[in-house]
């Protein structure tokens, strides 16, 4: 993970240099602000990857002699199937539709969004798959 971290840090350095040039060339605050925050975008990911790399040690991708199979194994928990994201999106769409139709529909949408989010967050906490 070290290489990925450094790639993002270098992007941050590039954005910072470009930002300084941009400021002295244009004296314009809007783009300078936006680009300064892009530095934050790159440094945040880069710092986090390097921080994680230091904590978890070398990964297969850091080792030039590594085999593909060294990266095998479980990556994490992924939901095999779930209807909840669909309901969350439909509720969100209903909420924003409410802005066009009327505030009553907006509040109906907010209620549906909260209920479907509860379903999404707790889908593995009840029923067959609860733990």
């Amino acid at each position: 993970m070290k290489i990925q971290g450094w790639m993002f840090l270098l992007c941050g350095v590039f954005f910072a240099a470009a930002d300084v040039v941009y400021w002295f060339w244009s004296k314009e605050p809007t783009g300078t602000t936006a680009m300064a925050i892009s530095v934050g975008l790159a440094l945040m990911i880069g710092y986090y990857l390097l921080f994680t790399a230091r904590r978890i040690g070398d990964q297969p991708e850091d080792n030039k002699e590594a085999e593909i199979s060294d990266g095998a194994g479980e990556i994490g928990f992924y939901s095999p199937h779930s209807w909840w994201p669909l309901f969350v999106c439909l509720s969100a769409a209903l909420t924003f539709f409410g802005f066009a139709v009327g505030m009553w529909l907006f509040f109906v949408g907010v209620f549906c969004t909260l209920m479907s989010m509860i379903g999404f967050v707790f889908q593995y906490y009840r029923g067959n798959f609860s733990h």
Binding site: M1, T52, I56, G57, Q59, G73, E74, I75, G76, F77, P80, Y124, F129, H131
Partner: peptide
């Protein structure tokens, strides 16, 4: 389906 165990050793980054 289990979400209770550590899905990988501590040597892997937590993807979440």
């Amino acid at each position: 389906i289990t979400t209770t165990t550590r899905p990988h050793g501590s040597s892997r980054p937590n993807l979440v």
